[in-house]
Amino acid sequence: MATEAETGLAFHPMDQFVVKPLFRHIEPGTCVPSQNITEGCIRWYEPTNATLWLGLTALAIIALFVFGTRGRAIIPNRVQSIAEMTYGMVYKMLEDICGKEGLKYFPFVMTLFCFIVFSNYLGLLPKSFSTTSQIAVTGVLALMVFLGVTILGFVKNGAHFLGLFWVSSAPLALRPVLALIELISYFVRPVSHSIRLAGNVMAGHAVIKVFAAFGAMLLISPIIGIVVTPLSVLGIVGVYGLEMLVAIIQAYVFTILTCVYLKDALHPSH
C-alpha cells in the first residue's frame, strides 16, 4: 500500500475477500468491537455478499442435481451425465477408501464435494465473492469433519479408537513418543485441512488481482506499460487457467482427506 502513492498503481488484492452487507453501507468507524462500538457491525442474520454467493452455490448444485436429472433418462443428456459422473466419482472414492460401511456417509461427503467445487468455480467469476477463500467457511467445514470423525470414532469403537495413536508395530520404547506425534498430527488435521483450501483459493485470487493492478501500467507509463501490460494480461490468463485446475483439485483433495479421516474412524487399527 505504501507504493501506491508513488506509482499510482492500485494494489488491493485483499479487497475481494471483504464481507459486505447487501442492502446497506457500513459507515466508517461504526464497527469497532474492542471499543464496544457495534451498531455498524454485520449482524449474524443479515444477508451479505457471502450469503448471496453461498445461495448461488446452492442454487447451482440444485440446478445440476435436481433439475438436471429431472428426466430420469436411461440414456442421459449432457447435464444428467455430468451429475451422474460426479456421483460416480465421489461414490467410488468413498467406497475405495472406506469400504462398504463408509457409504452410509455418502450424502455428507457428496455435499462437501459439491459445495467446494461449485463455490470454487463460482468464485472464479469476475466480481464474485469466493466463499471458500474465507477461513470461517473452510474452518467450519474442516471442524465439521474433524468433530464428526472423532465422535464417530469413539461411538463406533469406544476406547479402541485410541489405538489410532498407539502404534503397536513400533518398538515399545518408541511408542509414547510416536503417540505424542500422532496426537499432535491428529489435532493439526482440521488446521491444515481448512487452511489448505482457503490458502489455495486466496493465493490464486490475490495473485490475479496483483497482475490486474500491473495491467494498468500502460495508463501510467506508456514506455514501461508496453512491456508490462501484455505480460500481466498473459499472467492473468495463465493463473486463471491454473486456478481452474486448483479449484477442482482442492475440492478433490478436501474430499479424499475427509474419506481418509473417515476410514480412520471406522477402522482405527494402525
Binding site: P33, W44, Y45, V140
Partner: peptide, 13 residues
C-alpha cells in the same frame, strides 16, 4: 465480526 454471519449462512446452505 463477520464470522457469525458467514458461519450462520454456511450452515443454512
Amino acid at each position: 465480526t463477520t464470522f457469525g454471519n458467514q458461519i450462520f449462512w454456511l450452515l443454512v446452505t
